[in-house]
Simulated assay, not measured.
Amino acid sequence: NKGKSMTIPGISNWFEWTWPIEGEDAGYIKARAMPNVGKWTLFSPAHIQKLLKGEINQPSPQVSETTKPKSPWKIPIPHSSGICPKRLPLQELTNELQNRKVDYGNQNKRQKLVEILDKELTHETLEKKESCLRNRSMLHKEYTTRLSDITEFPLSSGWAMKEVQKYGKKGGGKRIKKSISAVLEECFLAGNVDKSYRMTAQDMWNLLTLKAQEGEIESSDIPKVTTIQGWITRYAVQLREKSAQMVLEEA
């Protein structure tokens, strides 16, 4: 049977990983929550070894030497229009060249027209690619300029890394005291008997506030309106379950 595998505590908080083989961090595994943001968390080989039963080995991929072709490969660059000159009949070749205002002289041999159109399509594709690269370069320059203006954390206030988020313990909030629950139950049941006495969560909160002013309860014990609303929902479910159980027992 395989033993229970162990993982690094908090491993789900990190989304960028690297295992450098050079520099001062060589041999360490580095992790952080977001690419290019925040400080690295370092894990030493000794730390990782404690989580493993066997020996830890850094991957060493095998790379083969490139081969040199004996004959040149001429592969046309695909055009965005999807046109393939080699598959076009003579008339369509001339139409495409005329539409692009390409001077092909008195050439009427199909193979030559294919070569001319192929060069024109390649030229158009390269021009479009260069334009895209220029735009991308400008956007990158603008982005890096904005980053250089940020002296502190590059995200606005209110953001938090997953690794530093703190979640409240479920059920760990302030509980409603029995004396308060008794008042709420009385209000709820009175509303069940007579709809004219039915109270909302806000109405119940107002009643509790009045009782606190009269000294019957402590004002610090009064729950929030949202808490009272949650209590109403849960208590209504409990009453329905009790009623259903009683019907089953009497049947």
Rank of each mutant, 00 (worst) to 15 (best):
K2Y: 11
K4Q: 11
K4A: 13
M6Q: 14
I8H: 09
I11N: 05
S12K: 09
N13C: 15
F15H: 15
E16W: 07
T18C: 08
P20G: 10
K30M: 15
A31S: 14
R32Q: 11
M34P: 02
M34I: 15
P35H: 13
G38S: 08
W40Y: 12
W40D: 12
T41K: 14
T41V: 14
P45Y: 02
L52S: 15
K53A: 04
E55V: 05
N57A: 06
N57R: 11
P59T: 02
P61S: 03
S64Q: 12
E65Q: 14
K70D: 13
K70R: 11
W73S: 07
K74W: 07
H79K: 05
S81N: 01
S81E: 02
G82D: 00
I83V: 15
C84R: 14
L90D: 10
T94N: 06
N95H: 09
N95V: 06
E96R: 06
L97D: 11
L97E: 11
Q98K: 15
Q98L: 13
Q98D: 15
R100Y: 00
K101A: 14
D103I: 13
Y104K: 03
G105P: 00
Q107D: 06
R110E: 15
R110L: 06
V114H: 06
I116G: 13
T122H: 07
T125N: 03
R136F: 06
S137E: 14
M138N: 13
L139M: 02
H140K: 13
K141W: 10
K141V: 13
E142H: 04
T145L: 09
L147S: 04
L147C: 08
D149L: 08
I150A: 01
E152M: 05
L155P: 02
S156A: 13
G158C: 09
G158K: 09
M161R: 09
V164K: 08
Q165L: 14
K166C: 10
K178W: 07
S179Q: 12
I180P: 04
A182T: 15
A182C: 12
L189Y: 08
L189D: 08
L189N: 09
G191E: 12
V193M: 05
V193E: 04
V193F: 08
K195E: 13
S196V: 04
Y197D: 02
T200G: 03
Q202M: 01
Q202D: 10
N206Q: 04
N206P: 00
L207D: 02
L208S: 02
L208I: 02
Q213K: 00
S220R: 00
S220T: 00
I222Y: 00
K224Q: 09
T226R: 07
T226H: 01
T226D: 05
T233H: 00
Y235R: 15
R240Y: 01
E241W: 01
K242D: 10
S243Y: 07
Q245V: 09
M246H: 04
V247C: 02
V247P: 01
V247S: 05
E249G: 04
